[in-house]
Each structure stands twice: as structure tokens, then as C-alpha cells.
Amino acid sequence: MAIVGSIAPRIRGIVTCVPPTIVDNLAPDQPGGPEANERFVAATGIRRRHVVAGDESLLDLCAAAASTLLASLGWAPGTIDALVLISETSSGRMVPHSCLLQSRLGLPNSCAAFDVGLACSGYPYALWIASSLIRAPGIRRVLLVHGDTTSRLVDPDDPSTSLLFGDAGSATALEWDPAAGDRTWHFSLHTDGSGAPHLCVAPAGGPRTDAAGAGVERLRMNGTAIFSFALTRLPPLIEETLKAAAVDRSEVDYFVLHQSNQLVLREIARKCGIPGDRMPTTLADFGNTSGTSIPLTVTMGGLARTRKRPLKILLAGYGAGYSWGSALVDLEPDAVLEHLTLQHVSTPP
């Protein structure tokens, strides 16, 4: 169990980006049929999803978010010291997507860049990595890029997954804060690899373990196992994070959880005594966008901000691995929050 405090950097901004194609889960061409899909939407809260089409890619979504963020902040690309890309669906064929993005954004050769292959738990982990990096001399500005195109992994004939997942990219800018003093963020990070078979990309029968694996690889999800995992692991995760930070839940402005589905969010809110208005959701319009659902809910979840003080936000991600983690962070009043729809796909390097 890792429960850590880290000198707080400052979140300068978050930009999220979704593809323009919108799928309505109640459209007649969706798998499952009208009656079953009405029931699915009512239970999961997922009415619409944005999905990539044609040549649109994870890199396009992330590059659009990152370049918009740099422009909004007025940050020259040459000032970025590190780029961390978090994704479960990057497919760079040996070349890390972070390297492709470094080139596409025009970041300097002095920029450290690497990928982190986490799924729905990725965002809290990424904030922990970034805050750790920023403690090191020479690292002042870190760009976190988190995105997934999970819709490309699902079996289009399986309504239990194909109606669930949407696609999105995001970029988060973090900077060393000389005024932070002893102000800390708190993280709680966990792993249980025995849960791997319950949510993975594999041929029918289980996760692929060697090059001899055969069959069509699709996202395989044991919804019952994942649901039980979330209900069991999330409440103690939230409690231990608050305890480590010596923060009462009433002091937390928002609990932004990975948007898996409405059933999970409602149950966690009930079990943890979190009022619904402090657990924002973006499920209705975006579906489950994997780990990117956390920054997406920060930008599009209707958070009420004040100029007087930072928002205290508990972020929690959970999913494939099993991997789960939380981050208790501050969002300053001047942090840029933007959301955009991918308009133009530039040519990759």
C-alpha cells in the first residue's frame, strides 16, 4: 500500500478534447435493441458517446488538447521540461506516443518524455508522477497527457462494452510552485494484478500471455467482477486518503471519480456519504472515457469555482489491473479549464 504526500505543484490548466462523432445509445442501429438499450441508459447514465472515426487518433486528441493548453497559458514549447503520456490504447509499435507528441508539439530535445501504460487509474498516478518529478532540480514544468480511444477495442456486437466506452484526450499543465511551502498533495495508490483477467484486451478465453496467442483481440470485461471490485475498494481508498491528509470530507469541494457508470458512482457516493452535488458526472454526454474521464469531468462536470480560494478535489481512478488510486489536490482559481471538440486533424510526424 502506498499512501504518500508530495509537495504540491500548481495545476496551471487542463484542456480536454473529444472527437466530433457522437453516438446515441438509443439510436436504432445500436446493438442490443431499443428496450434493452433504454434499460442500459437508465442504469449506466450513458446516453451519448464521442468516438473516433476515420483517421482520427489518440495522438490527434492529445495533441489538440496539449497545443490548446500551451497556447492558453502562453507557454512556449521550449519551456516544457517533461512530457508524460498516460494511455491504455497507445499503439506506437515500439515508438512511445510521448515521443511522437514531443515532436508534434515542437517540444525541445531537452524534454524528458515517456509513456505510462495505465488505464482508468492513470490520472491520479500521473499527478503523483508529475509532483514527484517537479521536486527534482531542473524540472519546473510538466505536461501530462492522458487519452484513450477505447471504442476501437470493443466488440461492436457486444452492447455491454460497445455502449459503454467513449474516446477522449486531455492535457494537464503542472508547474513548480515556489509559494507552495509545505503545502502537500496526498496520494493513495494500489495494485492487485490478480484482477487482470476481468478487464483486458484479449482473445476469447483470457489475456494474451505470449506471441502465440490467437484469435481476434477485443476488450473483455467481466462487469460483475469490476463492479464488486469498485464497491469493495473505492470507499476505503477515499477514507484513507482523507485520513492521510487529515482532511474531513466536508472540506472537499468535489469528489471526481473515474466515470465508469452511474451505478458505481451512486453506490460509492452512498457508501461514503458524499452528496450527489459534490460528485459531478459527465457520463450522459461522454460515457466511460477510461482514465481521461477524470480530467474530462473536471472541465465539463460543472464545477462551481470561486476566485477566493482553490477548490479541494479528491480524484479517484480504478480499473484494469486491477489498479486504483486517488489524489487529493488543489485547483487554483486561475487554472485554465477548457474543453474542445477535435476540428482538424494535422498530419502526424
Binding site: A43, G223, T224, L231
Partner: peptide, 13 residues
Amino acid sequence: SLGTLLLIAWVDT
């Protein structure tokens, strides 16, 4: 599968 999730939620609640 969805009905099973609803039953799990009901038992928990």
C-alpha cells in the same frame, strides 16, 4: 449482466 449489477447494488444498499 446488467441485472446482476443491479442485484449486487440492491444487496449492498
